[in-house]
Amino acid sequence: MSDTQHPRPSSAETVQALVRNELSWEELRALMRSPKSETRFDETIAAWQSVVPWEEQILLPLGENLFIVAKEGKAIVKTMAGAELGPWNGNWKMRCRMIVRRTREDLLEIYPSKDMTIDPDLVEIREFLCPLSGTLLDTDCVPPGYPVEVDFTPDLPTFYREWLGREVPVAL
């Protein structure tokens, strides 16, 4: 088949398909081998913007179903389903709903009994849920009592100004 019959998708189209989990393994492997495109970030933001059910401008994907967005001049954390979880650099997990597994019975709800050897006296599993959709956003395994921390606090000013070469569109 010639290229004219099946034109290669543009970079933006490929990223749209990547975000929608529509790339085949062969296409993913080609992407892995390609040089890392300078346009990927903007294409990713555009792709996510076309998927999310709300209007706010996405500033950074924080994780699956989780974004930093611009809202009323401020940067906040927002879930795919639309729950707003506080300032961009805050502890968004403390605005989630939680299920904490701290007994063997709690753990057996998800793990098979023959292999379940996690000792709940040593480790507890904390599930952080989107308060609107019930989607699991993060699962921590920590010793009991350990403070709840977010895994990532981006340096948004440096990222936008120094790495992307433009101003963050909100006051930080």
Binding site: G63, E64, D115, I118, D119, V123, L137, C141
Partner: peptide
């Protein structure tokens, strides 16, 4: 081993059940 967990998963993913 000994009832511990290797490390957490990513974006809601879980660690496996344990070691024997």
């Amino acid at each position: 081993m000994n009832g511990g967990v290797f490390h957490k998963g990513l974006f809601g993913g879980y660690p496996p059940a344990g070691w024997k």
